[in-house]
């Protein structure tokens, strides 16, 4: 599934300027402890979190996340989107909880990645 398709299916808000080449998504991970995410999330995962500080950009970039989804309508801290745009990291937002966003992903992918 492409990021553009994922955004459309979920009705998520795209906070960054672009979907940056419309990356392919492969799997989903949720977590807020950055080192935990860094060590456990896999390349091309959707990363769902309520953590909104500037460090999420580096974690997404270095772990190879396909995109970040900010859950529960959290607003990114100042500078996050600018930095994400500079590093071609896609940031999305939804009012749904992390649980509901995981359930969305499960539904979108017909369970084949879980």
């Amino acid at each position: 599934m492409k990021v553009s398709e994922y955004i459309k299916l979920g009705g998520y808000e795209l906070l960054t300027k672009s979907d940056y080449g419309d990356r392919e998504i492969d799997g989903c991970y949720t977590g807020d402890l950055l080192s935990w995410v860094m060590g456990r999330a896999e390349e091309d995962n959707v990363w769902i979190t309520v953590m909104s500080n500037i460090n999420i950009v580096a974690v997404a970039s270095l772990s190879g996340a396909a995109c970040i989804v900010l859950a529960e309508g959290v607003s990114p801290d100042e500078g996050v989107i600018k930095k994400a745009d500079a590093q071609d990291i896609i940031v999305l937002r939804s009012d749904k909880t992390a649980y509901e966003l995981c359930a969305d992903y499960f539904k979108f992918t017909n369970n084949d990645k879980l």
């Binding site: 807020d32 402890l33 950055l34 080192s35 935990w36 953590m51 999420i56």
Partner: peptide, 16 residues
Amino acid sequence: ELGFGAGMGLPNIKNY
């Protein structure tokens, strides 16, 4: 509060 301090730093380095 910034999301660090999970006690995974050195173990992650060793694992990877």
